[in-house]
Design a protein around this nucleic acid. Structure first.
Lengths: 186, 207
DNA sequence: GCTTTAAAAAGTAACCT
DNA sequence: AGGTTACTTTACAAAGC
């Protein structure tokens, strides 16, 4: 049975890690082709990988944030590339640095147009933020799983704030159930 | 002890000064926006609640006072757009928007989005349009709402387009540029919403 | 609170042809 | 009138102001 859950696509994964070693970012900026480092603007050095496409923010403390990857595997691959580049520069990197997924952004399609005014009241104004003068999406904060869902009039949605791949699936099943119970789904 | 007593006194005193300044700002902005007395009273009540709930630390008096005025106008059914509010406020639009969302969430104001129809009388009057035009504009918005056209669209943009469409339907002179000026909505948006409103009107008997 | 990064959704806006 | 680009919102980490 194909349903909204099958339309889920991971759009972005944010993760953090650390090499367990302090870094000289000025030197690293010179040794890493393509690195952007503007300490006046931001304390992190920006480094982009092409395959998989991702961006890493590398800090003096050796901590690294990776964002832009389309899957958790891509996060590991992108960070693996960065760890290897650092090792090539004779920078000691822990054997298998722990990588923590901090946030997963997914999109999905409920397959029906949504009446956001009715939905705002039905889902409960206390959990909803709907300000069409400022943003076309209705913001719904779900407790379990703890995610934030943006719902649009087209029925397309965005799920963010989850740390596990199945948070989005659970959230979509849950939101479909709630909207359906209100009689507001197609 | 004396220090604790002084602290309490200082806190109470600063809150009173804070409140005086805020109420003055609310009065000034409400006057500039032509908002009635009951809206100023509501805005003042919301501001007092924000002060009592310690929502002020970390935020500017002017930003919170502006947000309270914006909220009160919407609650009274006489909304002013964020652009209109920001024009008479010392803080910029983005801060008003952010602060308003914070205050509304913390105080559980549960303010529903403005109904586009509530902007019609003011926009139409400023354009010198007839009562028949206003009625037409409202009808266009009612039909569009039933067709589910409103989701995600700015109430201000919908109202501007309805007023423009109504003027054309009643053969009264207006231009997209004139409507754009009074509503602070781009001509492109007015055009887009205008087509949707007429489309919803044509489909009245269908579905 | 801000700074930077990434990505989706849909509406709005500025700019150019 | 159309097209492109860019900004609005959500979440999250990082170091420092």
């Amino acid at each position: 049975m194909s349903g909204p859950a099958d339309s889920i696509e991971i759009q972005n994964v944010v993760a953090s890690t650390g090499i367990g070693q302090e870094l000289d970012l000025e030197a690293l900026a010179d040794d890493l082709p393509g690195a952007d480092f503007n300490p006046d603007n931001f304390p992190g050095l920006v480094y982009r990988t092409q395959d998989p496409k991702a961006a890493a923010l590398i800090f003096r403390s050796g901590k690294i944030v990776c964002t832009g990857a389309k899957s958790i595997d891509d996060v590991h691959d992108a960070l693996g590339i960065i760890f290897d580049k650092l090792r090539e520069l004779k920078i000691p990197v822990d054997d298998e640095p722990e990588i923590t997924v901090q946030n997963i952004v997914s999109s999905a399609d409920l397959g029906h147009n949504l009446n956001l005014n009715a939905l705002a009241i039905g889902l409960g104004l206390e959990d909803v933020e709907y300000e069409p003068e400022q943003f076309p999406g209705l913001v719904y904060r779900m407790d379990e799983p703890k995610v934030v869902i943006l719902l649009f009039g087209s029925g397309k949605i965005v799920i963010t704030g989850g740390k596990r791949t199945d948070d989005a699936e659970t959230a979509v099943e849950e939101i479909v159930e709630r909207i359906d119970a209100l009689g507001l789904l197609g | 002890r004396l220090r604790k007593w002084n602290e309490r006194f200082r806190t109470r005193d600063s809150k009173e000064r804070n409140l005086k300044q805020a109420l003055g700002e609310i009065d000034r902005m409400a006057s500039a926006l032509g908002l009635p007395e009951n809206v100023r009273e509501t805005a003042s009540v919301i501001y007092r609640r924000a002060l009592d709930d310690d929502l002020l630390p970390g935020r500017s008096i002017e930003g919170v006072a502006t947000s309270c005025t914006y909220a009160a106008a919407r609650m009274a059914g006489v909304p002013r757009s964020l652009d209109e509010i920001a024009e008479v406020s010392r803080v910029e639009k983005s801060e008003v928007a952010r602060t308003y969302r914070y205050i509304a969430r913390e105080l559980s104001l549960e303010v529903k989005p403005a109904d586009p129809e509530q902007y019609v009388p003011r926009f139409a009057s400023e354009l010198g349009l007839s009562d028949e035009s206003k009625m037409r504009a409202r009808q266009l918005l009612k039909n569009a709402k039933e067709k589910g056209v409103h989701s995600g669209k700015s109430p201000v943009g919908l109202a501007a387009a309805a007023v423009y469409a109504a003027a054309l339907l009643t053969n009264e002179k207006t231009t997209q540029a004139a409507v754009s000026d009074v509503a602070d909505i781009s001509e492109v948006t007015i055009r887009n919403r205008y087509h949707e409103l007429l489309e919803a009107e044509e489909n009245l008997g269908l579905v």
